[in-house]
């Protein structure tokens, strides 16, 4: 099996400050990787570098694209990268309003990606949007409502539907459960777990919530001050952390 994504030596500096330094890993099809660390540890910088939102100072992000095989997405032309962002890739923002069009109905939000890749049959687009609302547990009667009338959890689920409707293979998630109620979080996590399993998705999830990665991630990277200090199987890193910082991070979680 070949990796879906090969990240090599990603480095991003903000002046003299290090955003992230020399990060490398391979992600295989169907794998979910979590990136944890405190605020400012460089996990979001890394995610944005990989997803093409930030230009790193050094490194490669090689992706096995459906259309032309292995490509370094950092040296791709912008139209190619944006096309990738609408087809093979998806990005789930922490704040749903960053990833949704708040002035457009739920159906239009889900349908946009379909229309962006050339679907021109209203009935088909609407059927797919309805199907996806169902998959993220939003009642079909809300299809024509705007996301402004949705709760936070529903908005987040709508964002996920909008991202997954074109059947991406790699999903980047930035604190997908941040800012949500604990009860809503559990539902979202269970939903994500089912979707990842059923669609065979690969995902990279940035979070500071260790419970989230324990449930969703197969593998874990722990970051501190821009460096990856430990990486491995999720339950192994959480239950038997080796690095001093990982031990501190795990032992700092309040037990309920």
């Amino acid at each position: 099996m070949t990796p879906l994504l090969s990240v090599e030596g990603i480095t991003k500096r903000y002046g003299t400050h290090i955003g992230c330094a020399d990060v490398s890993f391979d992600l295989y099809p169907g794998e979910v990787m979590g990136i944890v660390g405190e605020s400012g540890s460089g996990k979001s910088t890394l995610l944005n570098c990989m997803a093409g939102h930030l230009a790193p100072d050094a490194g490669q992000v090689i992706f096995d694209s459906r259309t032309d095989g292995f490509r370094d997405t950092l040296t791709m032309s912008e139209p190619e990268r944006r096309m990738l962002g609408r087809t093979d890739w998806a990005f789930v923002h922490q704040h749903a309003r960053d990833g949704l069009r708040m002035g457009v109905s739920a159906g239009g939000n889900v349908g946009e990606r379909l229309m962006a890749v050339g679907e021109r049959h209203y009935g088909d687009i609407r059927d797919k949007a309805t199907d996806w609302l169902g998959r993220v547990e939003i009642d079909a009667s809300r299809l024509d409502d705007r996301p402004t009338t949705f709760s936070g959890g529903m908005q987040q689920r709508l964002q996920i539907a909008r991202n997954l409707v074109t059947g991406p293979r790699l999903v980047f998630m930035d604190e997908p459960t941040g800012g949500l109620d604990v009860s809503v979080q559990a539902r979202l996590l269970d939903l994500l777990r089912g979707l990842v399993r059923d669609m065979g998705l690969s995902a990279i999830i940035v979070t500071h919530d260790l419970a989230v990665v324990r449930l969703l991630a197969d593998r874990l990277m722990v970051m501190k001050s821009g460096h990856v200090v430990e990486a491995g199987l999720t339950d192994q890193v959480l239950d038997d952390p080796q690095h001093a910082y990982s031990q501190l991070l795990v032992s700092s979680v309040l037990q309920v």
């Binding site: 491995g232 199987l233 339950d235 192994q236 239950d239 038997d240 080796q242």
Partner: peptide, 9 residues
């Protein structure tokens, strides 16, 4: 047991 399962390094 946990080492055999890969849970402990």
């Amino acid at each position: 047991m946990r080492m055999i399962y890969g849970n402990y390094l």
